[in-house]
Design a binder for these strands. Structure first.
Lengths: 107, 107
DNA sequence: GCCTACATGTAGACTGTCTATATGACGAAC
DNA sequence: GTTCGTCATATAGACAGTCTACATGTAGGC
């Protein structure tokens, strides 16, 4: 998949995988791959800064944990993040409806 | 609509509005607005360079015309552009299926 | 004469994602 | 005992597509 297409939708994806359970960055990347049937492989250099930004604006909260000697920063959705996810979902529906409407062969 | 979301899909939109009839740049912008019910207003500074790029890579061909004293550069889809449009359409379907699959609230 | 719509174009800014690199712990293989 | 693959996080800087702002000019209405 053209990586450019992702632009503007990554936040929604990240919030979405955190909807039901807190996860750390590495696990989020795996979850995205799994949930997309392998189509999405977002590099670490994209995900980690994005998560930090989402925390900075209050959609996520994080805490450190050590599991098997390895340090993890586990993120969870805040209430604000939950509302944002709702917003992202409707924005996505609008977006696809708009583009699909123009793209649809009209013959 | 978040303008960032458009990124990576503009080419498809441009090719799509030219599918059934040649149009000049200004008319393409109007067609995009009309076909999207007003949701898409792509600025001229985005469209004109994009059209020139699509011509450069062979998906469009253009010729100048003068209508009512005004000069227009009218673009039409080439065969290569038609194939590309097909490709863009299936890429779009794949893309939406992938993102929707991840975004969909899983109960 | 002035304003709006029509019509095209370019330079440079902006910004979200990617590439490349760095660090380090763990477990298995050899 | 060291090397390799996986786990895990992080940052700096490159990249590229879109947008902003500006420039130019015609036509028609008031």
């Amino acid at each position: 998949m053209n990586p450019d297409a992702l632009r503007g939708h990554l936040d929604a994806l990240l919030l979405s995988v955190l909807e039901h359970e807190p996860l750390h960055g590495y696990a989020i990347i795996e979850a995205l791959q799994e949930r997309s049937g392998g189509a999405l492989s977002v590099p670490t250099g994209t995900v980690y800064p994005a998560l930090r930004k989402l925390e900075r604006v209050g959609y996520l909260a994080s805490e450190w944990a050590t599991v098997g000697g390895r340090k993890r920063r586990t993120y969870r959705l805040t209430d604000s993040g939950r509302r944002q996810l709702d917003g992202e979902r409707s924005a996505w529906r609008e977006f696809t409806a708009t583009i699909s409407g123009v793209l649809r062969p009209s013959s």
